[in-house]
Design a protein around this nucleic acid. Structure first.
Length: 251
DNA sequence: ATGTCCCAACTTTTGGGA
């Protein structure tokens, strides 16, 4: 089974590129973030034409998460207690998946930063109580770089969000529910950046971060055959500022 | 590091968010 997670930064602006990518890479399940669409505006027919069913939690201008699947969608789970469109879960071909869009945090002294930490802890609490009878994959834009290897220059980011100790500790609590960061597990020494700012020529300068993560439950992490970032998708005309992260599993 | 992109709006330019 092939699963991809991708923060598309507006599904409206990115639809042609997303469809092209789906056709070329043929994932069984696609987890999208930042659709920025009302639920009524979700392009159900365009995805159906490629064989995908969708489950979308949208709120319009901001946020928005979706699951696309060509192996079935059941037991859709919508959101956390904050009411924002940042989490959707579903069971696709026997695999339980979650598409996550963690709050950005903005700055360490911003109320949005405390909200980010609370949101991650609520996600951890939810996953700690999960049904462990089948395989689980939790992925999305976590807006946290787990370690210094995951950023181009730790010194340049000191004092900013995405790299602070409390954010990293919140990710560690999530992992402690029994999850494995499979890109890092398969590539222990490569940065594997997933996001580059649109500004300042960041992509070409290599100023990136690994903030889009794929977690698989520890019992099934050994079923992962490949886990990689498609950085070519960050190139070309009207790219998202995030690249897709692909995982192939032999469940 | 902030040279961009995307959205909404009493839209033709600005402000908010990332």
């Amino acid at each position: 089974m092939r699963v991809v997670t991708w923060n598309v930064n507006s599904l409206n602006a990115r639809l042609a590129r997303v469809l092209e990518w789906l056709e070329a890479n043929a994932p069984d399940v696609a987890l999208l973030q930042e659709t920025k669409l009302r639920e009524a505006a979700f392009p159900t027919e365009a995805f159906a034409a490629l064989g995908y069913e969708g489950a979308h939690v949208g709120q319009g201008q901001w946020n928005g998460v979706a699951v696309l699947s060509r192996v079935g969608i059941a037991d859709v789970e919508r959101g956390l207690s904050d009411g924002e469109a940042r989490l959707v879960g579903a069971t696709c071909g026997g695999l339980r998946v979650y598409s996550c869009y963690v709050p950005n945090g903005r700055a360490l002294d911003d109320p949005h930063y405390a909200y980010k930490l609370r949101w991650l802890d609520e996600l951890s609490d939810r996953l700690a109580r999960r049904d462990r009878s089948g395989p689980l994959l939790v992925a999305g834009d976590f807006n946290v770089a787990p370690a210094d290897l995951d950023v181009w220059d730790p010194a340049a980011l000191a004092g900013l969000t995405h790299v602070s100790e409390p954010e990293r500790a919140a990710l560690e609590r999530l992992e402690a529910t029994g999850l494995v960061d499979v890109v890092r597990a398969l590539h222990p020494d490569e940065p594997c950046f997933t996001w580059w700012d649109y500004r300042g020529g960041a992509f070409h300068r290599g100023w990136g971060m690994r903030i889009d993560l794929v977690y698989v439950d520890a019992d099934h992490a050994t079923a992962v055959r490949a886990a990689y970032v498609d950085r070519d998708a960050r190139k070309g005309v009207k790219p998202s500022d995030h690249a897709p992260v692909v995982v192939d599993l032999d469940l």
